[in-house]
Design a protein around this nucleic acid. Structure first.
Lengths: 190, 190
DNA sequence: GAAAAATGAGTCATCCCTGACCCAAAAAAG
DNA sequence: CTTTTTTGGGTCAGGGATGACTCATTTTTC
């Protein structure tokens, strides 16, 4: 039963997963050696924790969904006005930019968790927020909820990319996403 | 001087480039064999036209920028009200969805043409449209023009992806991008 | 129809990544 | 301090893609 986090092993594993998410987020063709270097461990160690490359990919995906799910949970998007909840969600998501870059940087990854359990935790909540907002008129009810979700993650991804490249600080990126979600790119003349 | 399109060679080359853009847009790890199959030519032929894989990648990038540039040109975005011009641009861009998927599906590709000549043709025009719209109040002047450009391509990419996956018809996708650009995801209560 | 160009299948060497080891050194646990 | 665990470099075989090449066949061109 001690196959969970035994302190040392747990930390090493998390370091590998975090490094893998960051590295694969920037270059999906990254080699195991790249990931090991980013995690500051030996190649051997990576393969000791994840026998096959695909094991690592799966683990990174699940872990990234977990981290993003935690962030979503902290945003507590079931509470308050949909507009406010959406702002908290965006802030939380950009807060874990590296994971977002990994998850939404590869169409294959996104497609792979079509029916995963881990997806449900966060994604269901987000979908609930959107439909709730559409019902009370906060969000556009004349487009599919799935499109709104697509737009949300698309903008969060772009903002995360800007942050990760050092183009803008995190709070600026977050503000831009929120502003764009709320009024598009239209001028404030209205 | 006959190293341009000699009819047969030109058509084969274009077929390879188009197939490569479509294939690499869906799976950036696609092999030369995959691309050759998509283009309905032999592996040998691909390598005869492009000695090294990187030659092909470069050519596809330039060609995709060219095609997108042509579409942009047809949209004639220097004319008319910025709002209208933007609608024409989105329509034109989604019209060449495969190229958009290739160009904006890989961060590496986008990053590689930082100072390319081919970029200038279209990108300069787009940037011009944005600043023009910001100047006359059509577009939000309180955010960077580069962010608006990012949002534009980000949404066009998402829409192109939906079209390419058969989730929605092209005109619906186009309409959603335009609507989202103009009012974000906000409800129409205002 | 004959000459020239282009094509596609096939072969082969090479490179790079992966996966499976092994073992000495370092770190943690007792 | 001793034992146990973990680590990281190193080696090696296997697999897959690439690049270079040949040659018979098909297609264009004249």
């Amino acid at each position: 039963m001690e196959e969970l986090e035994t302190g040392v092993r747990g930390r090493t594993k998390q370091a590998i997963l975090a490094a893998a998410a960051a590295t694969l987020g920037k270059d999906r063709a990254a080699t195991l050696a790249d990931i090991a270097a980013a995690a500051e461990v030996g190649r051997s160690t990576v393969q000791r924790y994840f026998a096959e490359r695909e094991d690592l990919i799966n683990a990174v995906t699940l872990d990234s969904l977990r981290v993003l799910g935690l962030a979503t949970e902290e945003a507590d998007i079931g509470r308050g006005a949909p507009g406010e909840a959406m702002r908290r969600l965006v802030t939380a998501a950009v807060g874990v930019a590296e994971r977002v870059l990994y998850l939404y940087g590869d169409p294959e990854v996104v497609a792979s968790f079509g029916g995963t359990d881990a997806e449900d935790e966060g994604s269901i909540a987000v979908r609930g927020l959107i439909t709730r907002g559409q019902a009370d008129g906060t969000f556009d009810a004349e487009v599919d909820a799935s499109w709104i979700e697509t737009v949300l993650w698309s903008l969060v991804y772009s903002a995360s990319d800007s942050v990760s490249r050092g183009h803008m600080p995190r709070h600026t990126a977050t503000a831009m996403v929120i502003r764009t979600l709320e009024q598009g790119i239209s001028g404030g003349s209205r």
